[in-house]
Computed example of a mutant assay.
Amino acid sequence: MAAAAHPPPKGRGSGQRLAHRYAHEVREPFDDGWPSDDDAAPRPPPRTELRWEDARSALSYNDSPDIGFDRSLNPYRGCEHGCAYCYARPTHAYLDLSPGLDFETIIVAKRGLAERLRAELAHPRYTPAPVAMGSVTDPYQPVERELGLTRALLQVLHETQHPWVLVTKGSGVERDLDLIAPMAAQGLCAVYVTVTTLDAALARRLEPRAAAPWRRLRTIRALADAGVPVGVSVAPQIPFLNDDLEQVLSAAAEAGATRAFYTVLRLPWEVRTVFADWLQAHYPQRAARVLARVRELHGGRDYDAAFGARMAGRGVWADLLRQRFAQACRRLGLQREHTPLDVTRFRPPAPAPGLPQQRSLFD
């Protein structure tokens, strides 16, 4: 495999604004042999740009049989954590932005999302079920500290006693324990903290702007001490990279986690290029071997989108990983199934003044 044309700059997971799959024109660098002033001048690190969009809806629904929820909330598009493996990167193509560097440097925040959520929960035909946050991009990425969009959503869910589940790599979840802990006491919520590896050097390259592994373990402890049902996500499992599955589960259990789940690495659409370039930049000796094993996990392809297989993989290596995970969970007393959340406490809110209920014109 050829060397990456654009190694990631410090603190970023991707080094290029690769063209997305809908692009009509593709530009690639070309070396004509002549020196350029641009080659000698140091380039400033790419800065994060915040953009706003007006929220047209809050809840997104799915009918996927291998996902444990049918609705989700996502206050942001793009994620500054910059995880090289993120399966959500291709969603930036819908915005005519690159799934590479743009995904982690151009963050879109949804204006009015809490008010839209309030209106949807107030709809007379709404039926409550647990809502997932963090299913696409992290609700506690760095920009949340200033914007507080996730907190505004939690305030609506707290007010209406609506159940929810959240997955994050960010320690910012601790700031909202005043809302989370009372809901946890009523069986209304659960939090999963993703700890991909305990190897700090690997985590810094793999998830450059996410909290360090030790800090995520401290977040697990803080949540557990506050009485919040907390689990650990050890996703994704990447062959020949984060091979410390048992150690992560053990550390998380010691910190207070009571449940766990994992997925294997998925490389849909442009993620394959982003991750392959990242591998070549950071672990060139392993790159071919890692990608070959990923293809084995997905039936000889870079990605198998079949329900069930896409999350856990298939074949001998998938079976071995499944056995390792199951044995570690049994030894540590970690649950592998979600604890049911209470939907009977839900109380519809009064819709915000001046904001029409969604679809009310058609009912």
Rank of each mutant, 00 (worst) to 15 (best):
Ala257Met: 04
Ala257Leu: 02
Thr258Tyr: 00
Arg259Thr: 01
Arg259Phe: 02
Ala260Thr: 08
Phe261Trp: 15
Tyr262Lys: 08
Thr263Pro: 00
Leu267Glu: 11
Leu267Gly: 10
Pro268Leu: 08
Trp269Asn: 08
Glu270Phe: 02
Glu270Met: 04
Val271Asp: 09
Val271Trp: 03
Arg272Pro: 00
Arg272Phe: 04
Arg272Ile: 02
Thr273Arg: 13
Thr273Leu: 10
Val274His: 02
Asp277Ser: 12
Asp277Gly: 10
Asp277Val: 10
Trp278Leu: 07
Leu279Phe: 04
Leu279Pro: 07
Gln280Asp: 11
Ala281Trp: 03
His282Gly: 00
His282Thr: 13
Tyr283Lys: 03
Tyr283Thr: 02
Pro284Cys: 10
Pro284His: 08
Gln285Arg: 10
Arg286Thr: 12
Ala288Lys: 04
Ala288Leu: 05
Arg289Trp: 06
Arg289Gly: 05
Val290Arg: 04
Arg293Thr: 13
Glu296Ala: 15
Glu296Lys: 07
His298Glu: 07
Gly299Val: 07
Gly300Glu: 09
Arg301His: 12
Tyr303Ser: 04
Tyr303Cys: 00
Asp304Ser: 07
Ala305Trp: 01
Ala306Cys: 11
Ala306Thr: 15
Gly308Pro: 03
Ala309Val: 15
Arg310Asn: 14
Arg310Phe: 07
Arg310Ile: 11
Met311Asn: 13
Ala312Ile: 15
Gly313Ala: 06
Arg314Lys: 10
Arg314Met: 14
Val316His: 14
Val316Cys: 05
Trp317Lys: 06
Ala318His: 02
Ala318Trp: 01
Ala318Val: 08
Leu320Ile: 10
Leu321Asn: 04
Leu321Glu: 11
Gln323Leu: 12
Phe325Cys: 14
Phe325Tyr: 15
Gln327His: 14
Arg331Tyr: 06
Arg331His: 15
Leu334Ser: 07
Gln335Ser: 13
Gln335Asp: 15
Arg336Asn: 07
Arg336Glu: 14
Arg336Lys: 09
Glu337Ile: 00
Glu337Asp: 14
His338Thr: 06
His338Trp: 09
His338Met: 03
His338Pro: 01
His338Glu: 14
Thr339Gln: 14
Pro340Leu: 11
Leu341Cys: 10
Leu341Ala: 06
Val343Glu: 13
Thr344Cys: 07
Thr344Pro: 01
Arg345Asn: 05
Phe346Cys: 09
Ala350Phe: 01
Ala352Lys: 11
Leu355Trp: 10
Leu355Val: 15
Leu355Pro: 01
